[in-house]
Simulated scan of single mutants.
Amino acid sequence: MALPDSDVFVRLERFYDAVPRDAAVAEDIGGFVLFVRRGSTGWPYYARPRLGAETPSAADITAVRRRQRELGAPESFEWVHETTPDLLAVARSAGLAVLLAPLMVLERAALVPDLPLPGAKIRFLDPAGPGFGADLSASRAVANLGFGTAHGTAPTTTAAPAGPRERDALPPLGEDAVEEQRGRHAGGRFTGAVVESPADGILASGMCQRVGDVAEIAGVATLPAARRRGFASQLTASLARHALENGVDLVFLSAGDDDVARLYSKVGFRRVGTACIAEPAPAPL
Rank of each mutant, 00 (worst) to 15 (best):
residue 2 A to N: 13
residue 3 L to N: 07
residue 11 R to Q: 14
residue 11 R to Y: 08
residue 12 L to M: 08
residue 13 E to I: 05
residue 16 Y to G: 10
residue 17 D to C: 08
residue 25 V to Y: 03
residue 25 V to T: 11
residue 25 V to Q: 12
residue 26 A to V: 13
residue 29 I to H: 13
residue 30 G to M: 04
residue 32 F to N: 01
residue 32 F to V: 03
residue 36 V to T: 10
residue 38 R to H: 12
residue 38 R to N: 08
residue 39 G to R: 13
residue 40 S to K: 09
residue 43 W to S: 05
residue 44 P to H: 15
residue 53 A to D: 04
residue 57 S to K: 04
residue 64 V to D: 01
residue 65 R to C: 09
residue 66 R to N: 05
residue 70 E to Y: 06
residue 76 S to E: 12
residue 76 S to P: 01
residue 76 S to W: 09
residue 78 E to S: 06
residue 81 H to N: 07
residue 81 H to P: 01
residue 86 D to M: 14
residue 87 L to S: 06
residue 87 L to F: 15
residue 87 L to Q: 04
residue 88 L to N: 08
residue 88 L to Y: 13
residue 90 V to L: 14
residue 94 A to S: 15
residue 98 V to G: 04
residue 99 L to D: 13
residue 100 L to N: 05
residue 100 L to A: 14
residue 100 L to E: 14
residue 103 L to K: 12
residue 104 M to D: 12
residue 108 R to K: 11
residue 109 A to W: 05
residue 112 V to G: 10
residue 114 D to C: 00
residue 116 P to E: 09
residue 120 A to W: 02
residue 123 R to S: 10
residue 132 F to Y: 14
residue 133 G to L: 04
residue 135 D to I: 02
residue 139 S to Q: 13
residue 141 A to D: 05
residue 141 A to S: 15
residue 142 V to Y: 00
residue 145 L to S: 08
residue 148 G to T: 12
residue 148 G to L: 12
residue 149 T to I: 05
residue 157 T to G: 09
residue 158 T to K: 12
residue 159 A to Q: 04
residue 162 A to I: 06
residue 166 E to S: 10
residue 169 A to K: 02
residue 172 P to N: 11
residue 173 L to N: 03
residue 174 G to A: 04
residue 175 E to M: 02
residue 177 A to K: 00
residue 177 A to G: 00
residue 178 V to N: 07
residue 181 Q to W: 15
residue 181 Q to F: 15
residue 187 G to D: 11
residue 194 V to I: 10
residue 195 V to C: 05
residue 198 P to Q: 11
residue 198 P to H: 10
residue 200 D to Q: 14
residue 203 L to H: 02
residue 205 S to N: 07
residue 207 M to K: 14
residue 216 E to W: 00
residue 219 G to I: 00
residue 226 A to P: 03
residue 230 G to E: 02
residue 232 A to F: 01
residue 232 A to G: 02
residue 234 Q to V: 08
residue 238 S to P: 01
residue 239 L to V: 01
residue 240 A to I: 05
residue 240 A to P: 03
residue 240 A to G: 08
residue 241 R to S: 06
residue 242 H to T: 05
residue 242 H to G: 01
residue 243 A to N: 01
residue 243 A to G: 10
residue 248 V to K: 03
residue 248 V to I: 08
residue 249 D to W: 03
residue 249 D to M: 10
residue 251 V to H: 07
residue 258 D to A: 11
residue 258 D to S: 06
residue 259 D to M: 15
residue 259 D to S: 15
residue 261 A to I: 07
residue 261 A to P: 06
residue 262 R to D: 14
residue 262 R to H: 13
residue 263 L to C: 08
residue 265 S to G: 15
residue 267 V to N: 08
residue 268 G to Q: 10
residue 271 R to N: 06
residue 271 R to K: 11
residue 275 A to P: 00
residue 275 A to G: 03
residue 276 C to E: 02
residue 277 I to F: 06
residue 278 A to K: 11
residue 279 E to R: 14
residue 281 A to F: 03
residue 282 P to E: 04
residue 283 A to S: 13
residue 284 P to M: 00
